[in-house]
Design a protein around this nucleic acid. Structure first.
Lengths: 338, 338
DNA sequence: GGCGACCGTGAAAGCGGTTTCACGGGTGAC
DNA sequence: GTCACCCGTGAAACCGCTTTCACGGTCGCC
């Protein structure tokens, strides 16, 4: 009744139905042009043996795996989790699965990691904020089809470049800074992300623009990272800076920072305002609710798949997208004490 | 210099090094017993061609993929994301990747989904709270090696059963109820999870025990689900019930519920206390900070991999674990108004 | 010096599918 | 009645790697 320990192969089905493996293959794949009787017989045989083709063997023969790779710097970050959820759900709808790789602990091995995982899949969604531009360009060259998240390629990288989905961190953080300025803050602290992070660089640029427009404002830059622990660790320096408001690299950092400040007896926003970035799912429920720039991460995943799917089918993918964050003004940023 | 469009195969390396593919294979896999000169020559050839073995072909020949499957009901739930993060990181350390499947929208197809994805991998971590027991048993039989999350098998399912890692929801929710009782609440509402969810059943059992010990307490059961929207939707009924405290199925539901109650002008915990379950990463930062039962989800993922790894190597996995939640008493639960 | 054991290596047979190609039989046209 | 064509089918090659098995050569031992 049930299949034995050894899995049942196409040859078993063929034998039972009295046809060749080739015919079985054709029938299973809809490329069959013969009599219906035969097809029925084969299907019956397959059912009786509860046959299912080996995805591995198919992949090898076909040259496609129906799987895509997703490389992220930190899977523990809710922002990436949302992207993943969106990506995975939509890809599944088209019969594709997602193989994940967290490059977190070894940025230097990211190219190897990506290369390795790419070979197991048909395509790759790459999220590598800290990768040097030249390495990135090399990967884009070698690993296609490829979709970039939050990274662009230098101008003139040719038409063969990868679709790129980015978030306008520059404009987003600038808007946050403007908001703080309007609230009356004149001394800000930027608790920045990982060194060499491209998305951090974009934020810095946004702040530079803001600074140019507002010479009266002082901005201190305080090193941190991308996780909440980094934010917490930065609390002392933020406090020492004397800033009345802190722009955190992202929501996680903001949360850690708020926690850290609280340990000094500082209250947000009474004593100091704090803003985040991302609008992770729980940001609105935090204490205090976090003022942040909202990014539709799940949509990012969905669009990533749509681009990917087009690429895989050899169609031209849609245009690059620069997602515009939406300001979410909540309780964590308020007017400075007078 | 660079490889051509077509990928370089083991045969190319063999030809260049003047040996047979068999020898190349042996050298690449450390099964080589010949002269060092030959090995060096082969390695050099491989480098020059920048050869990397096809994982697909290896998998087919070897019968193992170095990938494991992870099936979850909802990837958007931070609790599962934490499990995934723990699982993925530790598995990666041993050279294994994780292929994910979100069964969310179609619980009825879960067995098919699991079967399909299992065939692409060496093993499967299954998290299927809503799967009927008989289907689950059938899967455990067919899909080994397999590790179960939050599901057990009936007694006497034999020594060949799968390792099972569970959370003691029963004790956890009972402790939460006791806590509310001590605070003075005598009318509780349980905002329950998905019908047929095994982990919900465990919670119900815990509450039954609690009810037996405290005949003076009334517990209303209010249907909801597992996501925050479900919690929000349950708010009216919770309010109508007149309960002074609500035990939510999990943190997500609790968060939604708190939001929903707030829309009615009810304040937590002043007007009504609310508890969650899971202690998702941000629970402590919420407004109000959520009283909940803390579950080490990332550890769950880590242990899942350790069991899995043992299983894959044919060793006997460690014992089943029943993780004990730790009560996190925070602001969302307080004494009822007198 | 001859025989057996041993060792490094390659040819070839898988792994389980897909696909090309050729073959044989049936049909339609002249 | 013959010839050409078409169509359904199977044999075999192939995807790229691993591994068994056999072969030829060395070495050791009596």
């Amino acid at each position: 009744m049930a299949a034995g320990r050894e899995s049942v192969t196409i040859a078993d089905v063929a034998r039972r139905a009295g046809v060749s493996p080739a015919t079985v293959s054709r029938i299973m794949n809809g490329r069959f042009a013969g009599e219906d009787v035969v097809a029925e017989r084969v299907r019956a045989a397959a059912d009786e043996l509860s046959y299912a083709p080996s995805p591995l063997a198919r992949s090898l023969a076909l040259g496609r795996t129906h799987a895509i790779a997703f490389v992220v710097p930190d899977l523990a970050n809710p922002a990436f989790q949302s992207v993943l959820a969106g990506l995975s759900k939509t890809a599944a709808r088209d019969g594709y699965r997602v193989l994940i790789a967290d490059s977190g602990e070894s940025p230097s091995e990211e190219p190897l990691l990506a290369t390795e995982i790419r070979r197991r899949t048909d395509a790759i969604v790459l999220c590598a904020p800290r990768m040097p531009e030249d390495e990135l360009a090399a990967l884009v060259e070698r690993l296609q089809p490829l979709v970039l998240i939050n990274r662009g390629l230098p101008e003139g990288s040719g038409p063969s470049g990868a679709p790129s989905l980015r978030i306008d961190y520059r404009t987003g953080i600038r808007a946050l800074a403007e908001h703080l300025h309007e609230l009356g803050h004149r001394h800000l602290a930027y608790v920045h992300g990982p060194e060499r992070s491209a998305s951090n660089a974009h934020r810095e640029r946004g702040l530079d623009e803001f600074a140019r427009d507002h010479p009266d404002v002082r901005i201190d830059r305080i090193p941190a990272g991308a996780a909440s622990d980094d934010g917490r660790a930065a609390a002392p320096r933020v406090r020492e800076s004397g800033a009345t408001a802190a722009l955190a690299f992202n929501d996680l950092v903001a949360i850690g920072l708020i926690g850290g400040l609280r340990e000094f007896g500082l209250r947000v926003p009474d004593d100091i305002s704090v803003t985040g970035f991302d609008d992770i799912p729980l940001a609105q429920y935090l204490d205090p609710a976090l003022t942040t720039a909202s990014v539709p991460h799940a949509d990012l995943g969905v669009v990533a798949w749509s681009r990917m799917h087009a690429l895989i089918r050899g169609e031209t993918p849609g245009e690059d997208v620069l997602f515009q964050p939406r300001l979410e003004l909540r309780a964590s940023a308020a007017a400075p004490r007078t």
